[in-house]
Design a protein around this nucleic acid. Sequence first.
DNA 1: CCTCGCGTTGGGAACGTTCCCACCCGGTGA
DNA 2: TCACCGGGTGGGAACGTTCCCAACGCGAGG
Lengths: 338, 338
Amino acid sequence: MSEGRPPTIKTVAARAGVGRTTVSRVLNGSELVSADARERVLRAIKELNYVPNSVARGLVTSRTEAVALVIPESESRLGSEPFFAALIRGVSGALTETRTQLQLVLVRDQLERDQLTTSIVTRRVDGVLLVSVRAQERVAAMLEEMGLPTVLAGRRGEDERLSYVTSDNIGGATAAVEHLVRGGRERVATITGDLDMDVGRSRLAGWRRAHELAGREADESLVEPGDFSEEGGRRAMRSLLERAPELDAVFAASDLMAVGALAELRAHGRRVPEDVAVVGFEDSVLARHTNPPLSTVRQPVEEVGRTMARILLDEIAEGGARRQQVTLPTELVVRESS
Amino acid sequence: MSEGRPPTIKTVAARAGVGRTTVSRVLNGSELVSADARERVLRAIKELNYVPNSVARGLVTSRTEAVALVIPESESRLGSEPFFAALIRGVSGALTETRTQLQLVLVRDQLERDQLTTSIVTRRVDGVLLVSVRAQERVAAMLEEMGLPTVLAGRRGEDERLSYVTSDNIGGATAAVEHLVRGGRERVATITGDLDMDVGRSRLAGWRRAHELAGREADESLVEPGDFSEEGGRRAMRSLLERAPELDAVFAASDLMAVGALAELRAHGRRVPEDVAVVGFEDSVLARHTNPPLSTVRQPVEEVGRTMARILLDEIAEGGARRQQVTLPTELVVRESS
DNA sequence: CCTCGCGTTGGGAACGTTCCCACCCGGTGA
DNA sequence: TCACCGGGTGGGAACGTTCCCAACGCGAGG
């Protein structure tokens, strides 16, 4: 096995006794090849162990068969790690069906964020998947302007113009709070996520909506801003307990904040769920292992990833005109904290 | 701003009033360019918003400035998700410094595993990072044979020939068990990981070694095989309790198995740590949130990723002769379960 | 027997770079 | 004055594909 250098399409053509073009046609599944020629080509390919050079192909077609998955550092940290992993799983699953490559881009700091556009142009990817964007996300705006096919995980706001896939945050939050109300809770507080993000705002909107549906007035003094982190959850719980000691339930906009809240409640001697019921959001691995096990809202993260990838492939194939916006259903998971 | 099509090196050359080659030289930092020409080229680049086409460059240099990170599906599942996320963070961090792209390849099933070689050849990456390999990993063997620069996370066995980065599994396990012995535990059992993997074997070796160092005979009936999963941990704990009800400590080769063990111990009315002490391995997010919080061995996962990337870049740059094998230190984290 | 058409085929050009080499030009030493 | 040198420069070729188009062979129809 003395491979000088890898075989090219010419090597194959020579071996099969045909021209370059015919080999190319076989490779790309064209009909205009005689059965005889096709068979000879296929045999030569197998004998030579030929694999087409995707770089050369990319040069002429100006398509790389690759998409970038862009994830802000903050998203890959925090308890959202399982989110991140599941999303990748979904994306990757949908992508491998079409042989599209997945490039991972983690954006650490502001500097990298600024270079991102150049970086994406250099990469020459066919499209971009962008995770969890803030309201004023410059990267998204730039991609939109460049006309590069783009699908967001989550949306920047309610008037999002780009394609996106998100889970039903309003519905999930509503269901969580309704569940608390139905369980006889009178004073349901909420610890919100970052209100600069649609997930944060939507989950808060769900809390409000549930009150409305129950014919109650939402008491805004029961709303405490958090930041999706465990420590943020602790802090928020602390100030809620000071301000509204009579509360008997908390809806936290993330499991991690719920974990922080649980710790703080314990520190204050409140029993869960007897004195205070707690519900989180996300259904991360954590939720099953807290004490007591955490009721939460499950999001179909892997499905979100899969859907994003499918939509992106669509956009790439069709020249990107039609935008698709999908909201996937969430599901309340009741455990012992409520 | 009516961009017909993106500017090429020729556009830049024309605008700067120089030849293609000179632009190329400026781009690649060659010294053989007059200050004057260099400045004109840089200005033209800025004015035209020119970004070199990495595909075309890749075609002639036959380097893509991209590496693949290959992760078996089983590794991205289970409680190892944070592991996976942290590893990616490390890899990505070290890579962005050199503008190298990261391609993520998740291997779901056997079929995909078989196609992996072709897939890697098609991708034309400059090197491969391969996660957590089993003893008989065909992919690793194939990469070795192809001579493609490769770095493993973990090793196939003690006689690994490829470059790898691993954490000190033997040392960590030894420390964990010594800690239990020093705490006065007499009968320290262990739930092993998959013994087909070096991590599994090494952590078991550490358990043996600690006994040896303490001048005790390791009682092999206290060894129960697990599979790194929570359910596996439960099952193993159950049969240990049946077989050796007098045990007073358990070292589980992963946090997730430790969690399973905790649940099973509780079900059997054993108190932790009073009746039985438990130590895990990994220090995943989970460990801080179990009841009681889990003592465990922390691995520097992000650092493993960073180191892998650095070694791979080295191998790529230097034509791959020298192999590097690095073992990073682990650290015992004592919480309340021991 | 010639022409037409259609299924099949292959060569040339192009994609945007880098690398090799030849060239130019001013200065230096004989 | 002439050969020589070396920094600076640019054009041609090559990388391995795909696409365009011209050409081929062969049977059918006039």
